[in-house]
Nucleic acid binder design. Structure first.
Length: 104
DNA sequence: AAAGTGACGCATT
DNA sequence: TAATGCGCCACTT
């Protein structure tokens, strides 16, 4: 509860992801000032608020997190599709096409 | 300060 | 593409 600073940054960054775009845990972590991608997951997990578009956060290979709280990955898929994000597979989004950060 | 835990990342198989 | 194993780093207790 002390490290809210880091979590808050992460949540803020996630909330800044534009509609129709996705970002990887690693990228967000870097933007938050850390090097570990897992921390990003905890930050969202502890605050599964409707304002946090955690559906736009995917793994480095574009696959969605299976442990999307109580909802399934299908939930994210539906939301992402509604935003215009294409899927290459049932669990993978088109990272090359919708990745927020490509040049790194 | 040390150990335990983890919504990951990457290299191999 | 999928599955497995190892490693890294930050957070909690």
């Amino acid at each position: 509860m002390e490290a809210q600073n880091t979590f808050k940054k992460i949540r803020t960054l996630v909330a800044k992801i534009p509609k129709g775009k996705v970002a990887t845990y690693g990228d967000i972590a870097r933007l938050a000032g850390i090097t570990d991608a897992r921390v990003v997951g905890w930050a969202i997990r502890g605050n599964t608020d409707p304002k946090i578009p955690c559906q736009r956060v995917v793994k480095a290979d574009g696959s969605v997190a299976e442990n999307y709280g109580a909802a399934d990955w299908r939930e994210q898929k539906s939301r992402l599709l509604s935003e215009g994000v294409s899927f290459k597979a049932q669990k993978r989004v088109d990272l090359e096409k919708h990745r927020l950060i490509q040049n790194f």
